Amino acid sequence: MDFDFSDDQQSLRDAMRKWVDKGYSFERRRAIVAAGGFDRAAYGELAELGLTALTVPEAHGGLGQGAIDAMVAMEELGRGIVLEPLAQTFVATSVLSHHAPEAVQAAWLPRIASGEALVVLAHQERKARYRLDVCEAKAAKTPTGHALTATKSIVPAGDQVDAFIVPAQLDGRIALFLVERAASGVTPRGYGTQDGSRAAELVLDNAPATLLTTDGLAALELAVDTGIACACAYAVGVMDQTAALTFDYLNQRKQFGVPIASFQALRHRAADMKMQLELARSMSYYASLKLGAPAPERRRALAQAKVQLGQSMRFVGQQSVQMHGGIGVTDEYIGSHYFKTLTQLEMTWGDTLHHLGEVSARMQDTAGVFA
């Protein structure tokens, strides 16, 4: 199997890295956090780079690229711990292009591609505990379509976006709907999250909605798996920078007149960090490559990837803080923000324990995780 990136993918990585290094400094990020955790101007810059159009089909004004291109982009965004939810754009694009009626695709995909519209998934409920088949939201038919009554939690940038993709019960099964934020009966309450990004509690009270698909669980599983793959790639970028920052600190910090990087115990811990990073990177590649596989195979692969990424994120983040000492948790130091991001990512799209259960449940004839 060829694991080399194409010239176009390398060009995409280079362009993203330049933007992160020059256009999304730590100071700019801190200002965005202070302003609420979301900057439409920064999201617009991502659109200008072509990222919002990356996975939109060419027929709807996009670039028609695949999961590996999205992975490359998310890795580079992770290096800068970029707050704007580009991953949600990839999630929405995947759901709409695979499951929405053609009229809905024609209405929304070109707007998503241009960056004019930001659409996010609003699926989490308090009682679900990461389970996708637990959904108390209700949909009712109306003379003009459907109306939704629901409460969804931790919706990314929920008070700033243009529309939501919402699962709800319709005729005894989960269906997927699109709800515009400006519609009647839509009430988002925004707040900042632990890593500095923005989310919202979303309340829908007979809000008008457009039906996307009655096979909502399958579409929701695809959406979440796409989100997991994006989170894995983003986490690799964050861990890459966390490790680089830590190794640089070990070479600069001195005790007894020598850099602490010369201490054998710390060198071993640094080597363990690097090993966990590379394990995470390989599983991130595996996750993105499996997005096009049949649903049972894809679901198991993404759960496997999230287990490894969860373990690696916890290890790399904690080792970085411990080897830095007190400065590793100060707000003025970027290392603490890498650590907070890794901690939050470990719980995003299902925590490690949840996905370990998913891997276990999907084992069949053998106890081997990768069978």
Rank of each mutant, 00 (worst) to 15 (best):
A303I: 00
M283N: 07
G37Y: 05
A207C: 08
M313W: 08
L279Q: 11
D215L: 04
D21A: 14
L289H: 12
A218L: 13
A150T: 05
E346I: 04
A113E: 00
Q241N: 10
D7F: 05
L356A: 03
E278L: 09
A218I: 13
G292R: 01
G325K: 08
V91T: 14
E45Y: 01
I165R: 05
S153R: 11
T210I: 07
G196W: 00
I174N: 01
P110E: 01
A92P: 07
T214I: 10
L289W: 09
Q322N: 10
A106L: 08
C230H: 09
I327L: 04
R299N: 14
T330F: 15
F247V: 15
I260L: 13
D4A: 12
A209W: 08
L291P: 07
V72E: 11
G145F: 06
D331F: 12
A183Y: 06
Q308M: 14
L302N: 04
L302E: 02
L54K: 06
E48K: 15
G326F: 14
F339H: 06
F5A: 07
L266N: 14
Q194H: 11
S184K: 11
M16R: 05
K306T: 02
Q322R: 08
D195T: 02
G310T: 01
Y234Q: 02
H324F: 15
E84P: 05
A100N: 02
G36K: 03
P296S: 12
V307Y: 02
L302I: 01
K290D: 08
C230L: 08
Y191R: 05
C232P: 07
P110I: 00
M1G: 15
L245T: 12
E84Q: 10
V95Y: 01
C135A: 03
R79M: 12
S94E: 14
L309T: 04
P294K: 04
D4C: 07
C135H: 02
E346M: 07
C230K: 07
G227C: 01
Q65F: 09
C232F: 06
S262D: 13
A271Q: 13
A35K: 13
D171V: 10
A122C: 09
A128V: 03
D240S: 13
K127R: 14
I260N: 09
G257E: 01
Q105I: 02
R362N: 11
D351P: 05
F90L: 10
I32L: 06
E346S: 09
A295F: 08
S336G: 05
